[in-house]
Design a protein around this nucleic acid. Structure first.
Lengths: 341, 341
DNA sequence: CTGAAAGCGCTTACAG
DNA sequence: CTGAAAGCGCTTACAG
């Protein structure tokens, strides 16, 4: 029923291996033979069976990318970078969304290992240590992305969270803000603590004592921004600026401020990490630290390919610089200028 | 090196088929044997090879979803609906982004057929006819999504574009707007023409002659909204309301209006299809027709599973109702109330 | 430049 | 309830 290599070989009057060699460009095939084979492939409408070839060759030419939230444009942009770079290298990419859920992550990983992917890029959830150590034991090639994990020594690509947070905080301080509320992710996620570290470093450099009550933590979600903002606004004295450690948190902050009747930046300043590029189209909705999402993706593929080529490589760390965008318009006509540089 | 079924069988002191039966719950295995097998699996850290089992059984338990733009939250929500429903049924889903590019679509399809996916759900690009007819010839089970294609008779799930556009237009007319500019997608995409049809039906019902100059077409992109808005604003008399046929077009419209110094809704009204749910969080940024994206996804899986179970089924069409949301806030504090119902 | 044989790791189909 | 044999559709390794 389905056309196989054997059928093509019969039609072309050659052996199966010769067809394999012609189609995969592995080994020599005379031009005349090649032509006959191509004709046979075309008339029979042959589609090779990658299951069979992968089973035999022990390579699938398939990589996987596990991200923690596909609804976040940061991650879709990373995914685009990964995919483009992978295709250039002749690999396909399977995109999986773990939703920050260790159970989902474990299920996907099991599925992927059963499919015998050649390697994977993973933005770990908050409890990935064991899963990753298991991968190390199985010598599955993988690259960490965005987040470091204690006890796991592997290639990693990430943005400069600490540096970015430092710049964002400095920007606020130099503009004259003094009491900056920091709303960040879980303490178990390295980006979250790195951003706190950058924030503290800037305060320190400017000789401002830091108030622990100004630092709020929670999942990288809208609700975290909303609730933390209400908490921070209840403080006395209340913050004159807020630092949202990611874009979703910033949305929650905006919502809470609106409900409280506070305007940005007239009543309170707001800055954040990442934005919503397709909505804001190059004009971030707040003063923002932008991470080079697509480059993070392509760098991860580069590390992974290097490792596939040479499994004994020492683990490497790639830290990509961030960009401070001081801004301006929210995409709907209302000006949200926080400060100018 | 890698642990195989044979190794597990040897360790458990049974044959390979028995292990296969135990792990797949196919056929009887005595409780005692099963226990020994489970122990062996655990101590050997066995991971089944799905390539081998798929090759033999001719089923991969894998479906594919081709969408035209993963950066559009409408499609990520659809994908979520597809994936959740697929997992419940024991299938994995491979998500592919065609970017409205027929070449990319063809490349993905080739890759997927080589991997022998069991079926696929496809939101076709503007030139998919041949590719889809090829799928029909190969009897690959597939379901169309969002868009009909001329000359292709297949299962399809879509939102009620015509009905939604009718309601949106009626809403404007009943609020008192009379000259409504329509900015829609390419005429080769069925949703685009359905939305025009709904728009025309509403005008007709209210006894308003339609002006062809008020209908602009282009890709479902921001730039289309931007350019068409400038064109429409140059008309005399100029429109008092604009209808953006999708969310990205609406962003371009907003940008153009802002550049022209026009406020929504004081100077001109604006309505659209779909919004940016994660950014606006339930409060659409404009008066909007919402399509039930997740339900479109799960319905597609249902049709596809039915077809896998029974390939001779007559093609079915599922049209899901849309919802009119009259609104309000743009997510950054500025009110964009267009009209009230 | 081309081929015959063996095998990747499973499951099907047939027995008992 | 369990097993021996065959085969899914390719590619590897060895020859010529």
């Amino acid at each position: 029923m389905t056309v196989t290599l054997r059928d093509v070989a019969a039609k072309a009057g050659v052996s199966a291996i010769t067809v394999s060699r012609a189609l995969n460009n592995t080994g020599y095939v005379s031009p005349h033979t090649r032509e006959r084979i191509n004709d046979a492939v075309a008339t029979l409408n042959y589609i090779p069976n990658d299951l069979a070839s992968s089973l035999r060759s022990k390579r699938t030419q398939l990589l996987a990318l596990l991200v923690t939230d596909v609804t976040n444009p940061f991650w879709t942009t990373v995914a685009r970078g990964v995919e483009d770079a992978a295709i250039d290298a002749g690999y396909g990419v399977i995109l999986c969304n773990t939703d920050e859920d260790p159970a989902k992550e474990a299920r996907y990983l099991d599925l992927l290992l059963r499919r015998r992917i050649d390697g994977l890029i993973i933005a770990p959830t908050t409890e990935s240590t064991e899963i990753l150590q298991d991968l190390e034991r199985r010598t599955v090639p993988f690259v960490l992305m965005d987040r470091l994990v204690d006890g796991v020594c592997a290639d990693i690509v990430r943005g400069d969270s600490r540096g970015g947070a430092y710049h964002l905080t400095m920007h606020l301080l130099q503009t004259g803000y003094k009491r900056i509320g920091m709303i960040t992710g879980p303490s178990s996620v390295s980006t979250s603590e790195d951003r706190v570290a950058g924030y503290l470093a800037a305060l320190d450099e400017m000789g401002i004592a830091h108030d622990p009550a100004l630092i709020c933590r929670g999942p990288y979600r809208r609700s975290t921004g909303y609730e933390a903002t209400l908490d921070l606004l209840a403080q006395n004295p209340r913050p004159d600026a807020l630092f949202a450690a990611n874009n979703f948190i910033a949305l929650g902050v905006l919502e809470a401020l609106r409900n409280e009747g506070l305007r940005v930046p007239e009543d309170i300043a707001l800055v954040c990490f990442d934005d919503f590029p397709h909505v804001t189209a190059g004009a971030p909705f707040l003063t923002t630290i932008l991470q080079p999402a697509a480059e993070i993706g392509s760098a991860a593929i580069r590390l992974l390919l290097d490792r596939l080529a040479n499994p004994d490589l020492e683990p490497r760390e790639v830290v990509l610089p961030t960009e401070l965008l001081v801004h301006t318009s929210c995409g709907c006509g209302k000006e949200l200028r926080v400060a100018s540089s």
